[in-house]
Amino acid sequence: MGVIYYGSSATPIRIADRALAHLKIVIATKLRRSEAFTLSWRHPDGDSPGRTTIWLHPAIPLRFVFDEPEAPTLNREWIEELAASANSSGGIQLLPAMFDDEHEGRITE
């Protein structure tokens, strides 16, 4: 289970390593182009109910931390799906399976 640390918040956003690897590619590409966008998710089971949206901007510190030392095999379709959503007015919408290592971070089921 990897994590994202965003801005000055010490609260990590926990995401399955494989899903996080795909998300990192899309986020890095957007921020490298100086493009800001949103990232949203419903709180996973076991957390307080609700949803969260963060505004990703190149000027805000961002750190990805992976549990696994080896990078997973990337799936081009997952990256394309995440990139398309990042370019939409709704931004990237993370799915519940992305927070679950048991599902290996599947983007679609």
Rank of each mutant, 00 (worst) to 15 (best):
M1S: 13
M1E: 13
M1R: 05
I4R: 06
G7Y: 06
S9K: 08
S9V: 12
T11C: 07
P12V: 08
R14C: 12
R18G: 03
R18P: 02
L20Y: 09
H22L: 13
L23S: 04
I25H: 05
I25V: 15
A28F: 02
A28R: 11
T29R: 11
K30D: 01
R33N: 13
A36F: 10
A36T: 13
F37S: 05
F37L: 09
F37V: 09
F37W: 07
L39S: 00
S40L: 05
W41K: 03
R42C: 08
R42H: 10
R42N: 13
H43S: 11
H43N: 15
P44L: 04
D47F: 08
D47P: 00
S48N: 08
P49W: 08
G50H: 12
G50M: 10
R51T: 15
T53P: 02
I54T: 04
L56Y: 01
H57I: 04
P58Q: 07
P58M: 08
P58V: 06
A59M: 09
A59K: 14
P61S: 14
L62P: 00
R63M: 09
F64Q: 07
V65I: 12
F66M: 01
F66K: 00
E68G: 03
P69V: 04
P72H: 06
T73E: 13
N75F: 09
R76Y: 02
W78E: 04
W78F: 09
I79P: 01
I79S: 01
I79R: 03
I79C: 05
E80I: 05
E80F: 02
E80C: 03
E81W: 06
L82G: 00
A84L: 15
A84M: 13
A84K: 15
A84E: 14
A84C: 13
S85G: 00
S85Q: 15
A86R: 00
A86I: 00
A86H: 00
N87V: 01
S88D: 02
S88G: 02
S89P: 00
G90Q: 14
G90D: 10
G91N: 02
Q93K: 12
L94D: 02
L94Y: 04
L95S: 08
L95C: 06
A97L: 11
M98D: 04
F99G: 03
D100A: 11
D101R: 03
H103E: 14
H103L: 15
E104S: 12
I107E: 03
